[in-house]
């Protein structure tokens, strides 16, 4: 900056005094700037006092911006036609999850067409970074983030863990063709 190059060095005894030449103070034209500034603030103040035209703030719980179509909210687990969870515990989502927030304990079912299901399916919404990679990774359309809900604030960390029950409560029916259900998927696609 110029102010540094303009500095002068003088020696007083053993001490070196550096005099920095600053830009001249703007106090002479201060009144004009003051008036100009006041016009701006006054204009905003009065227009906002009598009408609310310029206010950008939304009063959140009462007013909400509609979420975009691909908004990622709280997770949900989708159901099969018979109401059971679609998830087959393939572990793709915990593998894809960069935050390690998904815990699945797989188990075996009696139904030979399903074989594997998640005995435990937990998502720690505090850890979740809402990246949506779990949804991308899911081969079965079992996990979705289209609820348009936020993770609610919790008092204890443990309360933020979504269990299989709560995830299924939000879940709807998915008619997507299930992998591993046989060869007829191609017919129904047409």
């Amino acid at each position: 900056m110029d102010t540094v190059t303009q500095s002068e060095k003088t020696t007083v005894g053993r001490a070196t005094v550096v005099t920095v030449k600053r830009e001249p103070s703007q106090t002479t034209s201060f009144m004009m700037t003051l008036i100009r500034g006041m016009t701006v603030t006054m204009r905003h103040f009065f227009s906002n006092l009598f009408t609310k035209t310029q206010t950008e703030t939304l009063e959140y719980p009462e007013e909400k911006i509609p979420y975009p179509e691909r908004h990622r909210g709280l997770h949900r687990l989708m159901k099969r036609d018979d109401g059971r969870v679609r998830c087959v515990a393939c572990m793709c989502c915990p593998t894809a999850c960069p935050a390690n927030c998904i815990t699945i304990v797989p188990a075996e079912t009696d139904d030979p067409s399903v074989e594997k299901y998640p005995a435990v399916f937990e998502i720690d919404e505090l850890r979740c970074i809402v990246c949506g990679l779990c949804v991308e990774a899911c081969p079965c359309d079992a996990i979705r983030m289209d609820t348009k809900l936020h993770a609610a604030p919790v008092e204890f960390r443990g309360d933020a863990i979504e269990t299989k029950t709560s995830l299924l409560e939000r879940g709807g029916l998915s008619h997507a063709i299930q992998a591993g259900k046989g060869s007829d998927w191609r017919e129904s696609e047409q």
Binding site: F45, N48, Q54, T55, T57
Partner: peptide, 10 residues
């Protein structure tokens, strides 16, 4: 409140 109105807030 006044500062908010000046700055287009609530």
């Amino acid at each position: 409140r006044q500062s908010a109105m000046i700055q287009d807030r609530l």
